[in-house]
Simulated scan of single mutants.
Amino acid sequence: MFSNKQHSKTIYQTLFEKFSVPVAYQEIKPVLCVYSAGRVTALSAFLGHTGFSVAPVYEGCLISSALKRSSLGGSTISNRLAEILTASHVNFNNEDLHNIKSTLSYISPNYEVETQLQSTEGKSYTFYDGNTQYLKNELFRPAEILFKPNLLGLDIDGIHYMINDSIMTCPMDTRNELTKNVVLSGGTSAYKGLQERLTTELKDVDEELFETLKIVVNPAQSAWLGASILGSLSTFPDIALSKQYYEECGNSVRDSFIAP
């Protein structure tokens, strides 16, 4: 998510010296995700395939001291689904896992209650070998690990506690604005029921802090969209590094365009 200085220098060098782009500018993913939602201040919560990150952005600047990261993500859910199906002696392949996750799976509004219900509505699914199974708790158990990592034996916080901890680490005068602007992005953020469940869990953690909570879900290519918005602004040339300036001023100017 964040490039080191040497990586950033290499990017500028490649863009200008190999591809001869006229101007270039580097920005971190959380800020771009916030821009994609039409904001400059928000809590960027990115739930991707390989992990989850929380990054408060205030007036376009990352509050780095409040950054939180976790290994919980789409791949963790896939592995959990595979374990559950294996325990049920079902033959499946990776395409089955993808299809079930993207079309049938959901996050339960109340996990404890739903696991006890015998009347939980299920869905039929035909696996690659032609075997059709009626899936019920297999549809909501895998993603529950986002809120209860202990189901995997992991001693880490769920995503709702990470969001709360991140906001509480921020300066007090920024917290209200951040809780009113939570931008949830990344492919896994499209999970059915996630927005509603996350709202409930956050208010259970701290009802007063999250009284004005508003979550915006912006899953698809949010960083790219934010970059396109930034690049289309009339002020973009004022903040970007031009190829001419890069060639004239050398390493000193290159360093000034790279965050420490």
Results as ranks from 00 to 15, higher is better:
A223S: 15
D96N: 13
G186I: 05
D157M: 10
N164L: 01
Q195F: 02
K68D: 04
N99I: 03
V31Q: 01
N131Y: 14
I258V: 13
E138S: 10
G187F: 12
N99F: 03
P109I: 03
L139H: 11
M168C: 07
I239H: 11
S78G: 11
R39P: 03
N218I: 08
Y125D: 07
E83W: 09
Q195R: 14
S124T: 11
L184R: 06
T76M: 13
G73H: 11
E95C: 11
G122F: 04
G122T: 05
L152V: 06
H49R: 12
H160P: 00
L213M: 08
K243Y: 12
R69S: 10
V182F: 06
S75D: 15
S53I: 06
T235R: 09
S222E: 01
N218S: 08
Q221E: 08
F46Y: 06
N251I: 13
L241M: 13
A143K: 01
E211Y: 13
K9T: 02
T174R: 03
L67R: 08
L135F: 08
G186R: 02
S119D: 15
Y134K: 09
K136T: 14
S102L: 07
I107F: 07
A220T: 11
T200L: 14
L43D: 00
A37L: 02
F16M: 00
T86A: 15
T10S: 07
N164E: 03
C170W: 01
T41Y: 00
Y128F: 15
S105M: 14
Y111K: 02
A82Y: 14
A220F: 13
L209R: 06
L135K: 07
A227Y: 02
L184P: 07
S119K: 07
T126E: 13
S53G: 09
H98R: 14
I163K: 06
A45Q: 03
F52K: 01
V113H: 13
Y125Q: 02
V54M: 01
K18A: 05
Q116G: 04
L230T: 03
L72G: 12
H7D: 00
V23C: 07
P30Y: 09
Y25E: 05
N218P: 00
T235G: 06
G122A: 06
T50E: 10
Q26R: 01
F210E: 09
T103R: 07
F19R: 01
E201S: 14
E207H: 09
Q13A: 04
I163L: 05
F19Q: 00
R254C: 13
L209E: 00
G187M: 09
F147M: 03
E247C: 12
A259Y: 12
N164W: 06
